[in-house]
Write a protein that binds this DNA or RNA. Structure first.
Length: 496
RNA sequence: GGCCCCAUCGUCUAGUGGCCUAGGACGUAGCCCUCUCAAGGCUAAGACCGGGGUUCGACUCCCCGUGGGGUCACCA
C-alpha cells in the first residue's frame, strides 16, 4: 500500500558525551524503520568532535543499547562500510579540506579572534541588551593576509560567512518552510583552533559524503537549521529530507528531561537510559512499541506493533511535531502486552535470569509450566521471583496467622489441612476435575466457604496471599510437595 | 530578553472545512468473569487555550494574544 520508495540511507549520529537515552533511542528507531522499510541502510556514525566532553564508554553503550533494541547498524564503526571511517575524529582531514574549499569560494573565512575577545564582546553585548553574536571583525581581512598568518602558524578558526542582509528559508518535512532573517544568524565556527570540525560542518559534510537521504534529528537543531541549509547551498549539494521530530518532555509535561529527572525516574523504577531497561524487566519489543508511539501514530485505533509491523507501517508523514511528555504507565502496559505476545518457551527463557538473580535455582523440568502460569500476570520481568519463586524452593515459610483466616479457628485450619492431605492422597493427579468439587463439599461440611479453604491452601503452598490459580500451582508443584507442605502446616497448626 | 517551533481528554494521540452529539489508548472509577492476583469483557467520568476574522459552515484556514518547549559556545 505504501508507494515504492528509493532505498533510504539514514544515519543515527550520536555524540559520545553520555549514554543512550529515550530521546536518542526513539530517533534511532525512526532512522532504522525508515531505512528498513525502503530496503535502505541504517548507519551509525559517532560524532566525537568534542574532545573535552568525550566519554570513552559512551560508544560501547550506544552499541549495546542498539543491539538490545534490535537496531543493528548496516554501516558503522564496527560494521564497516563504503564510507569508513564512521568516527568523525578520524575524518579530520576531510573536514579541513571542505572548509578550505569554502574559504576559496568566499563562503568562509579565517578568524584570529581569541576566546578572550569573544567572551569580552559577548559580555558587552549582554550589558547593552543586545543579542550575542560574533561581531565580524575578521570577516573583511584581506584573504592574502589571512592566508599568510595561517601559514605562519598563527592560531585560528574558520568561520562560515552568513550574508548580513536578506533571509534564509530551510524546509523541514514536518513543519514546512522556516524562514529567518540572516542578521539573527551567526558566523558560526566551522573548524576549531584545535583543527577539528564542529558539528555544523562535520555533520553536513558527512551527510553528503555518506549519501544520507533523510536526516532525522531532534528539534533542538531547529535554531541552527537555516545555517545547515546554507552550508549545503554553499557546497552546491542536494539537501537530504530534513525531519525534526520534537523533544520528549518529562512525565508531567513541564520541561525537557534533565539529569535530575533521570535520577528521579530511576528511583521510581523507570528508565531513561536504554541500558537500564533490561535489568528493570522491560522487553525491547515493548520499549520500541512504546517509544514509536510518542510522537508518531498509525491510525485512530492500532497501538500494538511488533518490529515487523513498525517497519511496514511507519511513515514520517504521520510524525507529530508537538513536544510530548513521556508516559511510563503506558510502558508498563506495552510490556504486559508484549510479554503475553511471547511464545511461552521464549518467555520462559527471558524470566530464567530473573529467577536466578533473585537467588532461586531454576528447575528446568517445571520452568515452562511456571512460565505458562505467570505469563498473563507479569508486567515486568523483575516480578517473577516474588510471584513464582516458591516453585523452586523446597519449603515455604509458613506464617500461621496468615494461614488461619479470620473466619476459622486454628483447630479448623489444622483439620482442613489434614482433610486436604487425605483428599489429595486419594487421587492419582491433583486437578480441578478430581479435587475441586470434593474440596468445595469439604468446606461446606466444615461450615466454611470454599474461598477460605482456597486461601489456606494458597498460603500453605505458596507462602503468599496471591499466586497463580491453585490447581495449576499444585500441578506444577507435584503431588509430593503439595502434600508435604500441607502436612507441615497441619503439624505447625496443631502444635502452634 | 531575541529568534524559532508547538498548541484536542491528566498523558500519548485520531481528526487535513460539513463524516464530530470529537474516535482510540494509558491511567482512574464501577460492573461482569473468578479460588487470590492478573488477563479478558462491558460501562463511566474526561479535551478542541482565548479573541478576532475567512466561509453557507470551522477542531480543521488566516491574524493577534496567551501558554508550553527549544535555542542563543572554539558542545552536540
Amino acid at each position: 500500500m505504501t508507494p515504492p520508495t528509493k532505498p533510504a540511507r539514514v544515519r543515527f549520529a550520536p555524540s559520545p558525551t553520555g549514554y543512550l537515552h529515550l530521546g536518542g533511542a526513539r530517533t534511532a528507531l525512526y532512522d532504522y524503520l525508515l531505512a528498513k522499510q525502503s530496503g535502505g541502510s541504517f548507519i551509525l556514525r559517532i560524532e566525537d568532535t568534542d574532545q573535552k566532553r568525550y566519554v570513552p564508554e559512551a560508544e560501547a553503550n550506544f552499541k549495546n543499547a542498539l543491539h538490545w533494541l534490535g537496531l543493528p547498524p548496516d554501516e558503522g564503526p564496527d560494521a564497516g562500510g563504503p564510507h569508513a571511517p564512521y568516527r568523525q575524529s578520524q575524518r579530520k582531514a576531510i573536514y579541513r579540506q571542505h572548509a578550505e574549499q569554502l574559504i576559496e569560494s568566499g563562503d568562509a573565512y579565517y578568524c584570529f579572534c581569541s576566546p578572550e575577545r569573544l567572551d569580552k564582546i559577548r559580555a558587552e553585548q549582554l550589558a547593552n541588551n543586545e543579542n550575542t553574536r560574533y561581531d565580524g571583525k575578521c570577516r573583511h581581512l584581506p584573504p592574502g593576509e589571512a592566508a599568510r598568518r595561517v601559514a605562519n602558524g598563527e592560531e585560528h578558526v574558520i568561520r562560515f560567512k552568513i550574508p548580513q542582509e536578506g533571509t534564509t528559508t530551510a524546509h523541514d518535512f514536518l513543519r514546512g518552510d522556516i524562514t529567518v532573517e540572516n542578521e539573527v544568524l551567526d558566523d558560526i565556527i566551522l573548524i576549531k583552533s584545535d583543527g577539528l570540525a564542529v558539528y555544523h560542518l562535520a555533520a553536513m559534510v558527512d551527510d553528503h559524503l555518506m549519501g544520507i537521504t533523510h536526516v532525522i534529528r531532534g528539534s533542538e537543531w531547529l535554531p541552527t537549521f537555516p545555517i545547515h541549509k546554507r552550508i549545503f547551498d554553499a557546497f552546491g549539494w542536494e539537501e537530504p529530507v530534513w525531519v525534526h521530530p520534537s523533544l520528549f518532555l518529562k512525565p508531567d509535561g513541564k520541561g525537557k528531561l534533565s539529569k535530575r529527572d533521570i535520577q528521579k525516574a530511576r528511583e521510581s523504577g523507570y528508565p531513561i537510559f536504554v541500558n537500564d531497561m533490561p535489568e528493570m524487566g522491560f522487553l525491547p519489543e515493548a520499549v520500541n512499541n512504546w517509544m514509536a508511539l510518542i510522537g508518531w501514530s498509525y491510525d485512530d485505533k492500532t497501538e500494538f506493533f511488533t518490529m515487523e509491523d513498525l517497519i511496514e507501517k511507519f511513515s514520517i508523514e504521520k510524525l507529530n511535531p508537538s513536544p510530548a511528555a513521556i508516559n511510563f504507565s503506558k510502558l508498563d502496559h506495552f510490556n504486559g502486552l508484549h510479554i503475553r505476545n511471547l511464545e511461552v518457551e521464549d518467555f520462559a527463557e527471558r524470566i530464567r535470569p530473573f529467577f536466578e538473580k533473585a537467588g532461586y535455582t531454576v528447575d528446568n523440568a517445571i520452568l515452562p509450566k511456571v512460565a505458562a502460569a505467570i505469563q498473563t500476570r507479569t508486567k515486568r520481568l523483575t516480578e517473577v521471583g516474588d510471584m513464582a519463586g516458591f516453585f523452586f524452593e523446597d519449603e515455604v515459610e509458613l506464617v500461621t496467622e496468615r494461614i488461619v483466616s479470620k473466619k476459622m479457628s486454628a483447630g479448623q485450619a489444622a483439620e482442613a489441612a489434614r482433610r486436604l492431605v487425605n483428599l489429595f492422597s486419594a487421587v492419582t493427579e491433583i486437578n480441578s476435575d478430581t479435587c475441586e468439587q470434593p474440596l468445595r463439599d469439604m468446606a461446606k461440611e466444615m461450615g466454611l466457604k470454599a474461598g477460605h479453604i482456597f486461601g489456606l491452601l494458597r498460603e500453605t503452598l505458596t507462602g503468599q496471599k496471591i499466586s497463580p490459580p491453585l490447581f495449576e500451582t499444585m500441578d506444577i508443584l507435584g503431588k509430593e510437595k503439595t502434600i508435604a507442605r500441607l502436612e507441615k502446616a497441619a503439624e505447625e497448626l496443631e502444635n502452634g
